[in-house]
């Protein structure tokens, strides 16, 4: 029964593992894009300009209100045309190809960005206002204020939330299998179809996702510990 997982040309074991590697790669790049978008749109939401707040609000409402599958399809089919349209404005007339990995990263990154926006905004809000004022009074600004005082606190508060966003992102990458990117989900569908053994391949896929989840939990837990040095946990109070 386990012959199907043989490594090498006769079995699907190595293909499934490569699928897992692809899942981790596309999840990580999506999360990075997501956090970047999250920082930008959180800044928009916290800004004094109505237009910026409105843009950020529309972005998070739309992404959180329509199914992830549709977001991915829309970017997959509309993404290249949109990029080419923009390129034409700048005078580039050729064809621009966005490969499955790029499209997948952009789509899942956009979803992940909407959730990150809320997490980061919440974290910034929870830094006491006095800290900004004290920092400014001490003559700090720019990197010294934000890089050394505010960011470490935001990072600490946001970390558990980002851990949740990672979990959402990891699972959403299963949907980009529709764009042809061979990650765990697509690989197990191909193998299940080819061998007519769906049970064993979907079980293998479940185990791979749980393994990635377990490993990333360990990573986020240790990161949380590192950033909360010097803080007393709530449970201990």
């Amino acid at each position: 029964m386990f012959d199907v997982f043989a490594l090498g040309p006769t079995g699907w074991g190595d293909e499934m593992l490569m699928g897992a590697v692809m899942t981790v790669l596309v999840s990580s790049s999506s999360l990075l894009l997501g956090i970047t978008l999250g920082i930008v749109f959180a800044a928009c939401k916290l800004s004094n300009f109505f237009i910026l707040r409105a843009i950020a609000e529309v972005y998070t409402t739309i992404i959180r209100g329509i199914p992830e599958l549709l977001v991915i399809y829309l970017l997959f089919f509309g993404g290249s045309s949109a990029v080419m349209y923009l390129a034409k404005i700048f005078g580039y007339m050729g064809y621009i190809e966005l490969n499955a990995f790029t499209i997948g990263t952009i789509a899942v990154g956009a979803i992940s960005g909407a959730y990150s926006t809320e997490v980061i905004r919440g974290a910034v809000n929870s830094v006491p206002k006095g800290q900004f004022e004290v920092g400014k009074t001490l003559g700090l600004s720019g990197y010294s204020l934000y890089g050394k005082i505010i960011f470490p606190q935001v990072a600490r508060i946001a970390l558990p939330g980002i851990g949740n966003v990672w979990q959402i992102t990891l699972k959403d990458t299963a949907l980009i299998s529709v764009t042809g990117l061979v990650e765990i989900m697509r690989q197990s569908r191909i193998a299940a179809g080819s061998t007519h053994e769906p049970f064993i391949f979907y079980t293998a896929a479940i185990i791979l996702y749980l393994l990635i989840t377990r490993l990333s939990n360990i990573f986020f837990d240790s990161a949380e510990k590192k950033y909360s040095k010097g803080y007393v946990s709530k449970e201990a109070l």
Partner: peptide
């Protein structure tokens, strides 16, 4: 359930 994608659960 929280650690696996819904799509995969549905296929399963």
């Amino acid at each position: 359930i929280r650690g696996t994608p819904l799509l995969l659960q549905l296929y399963f």
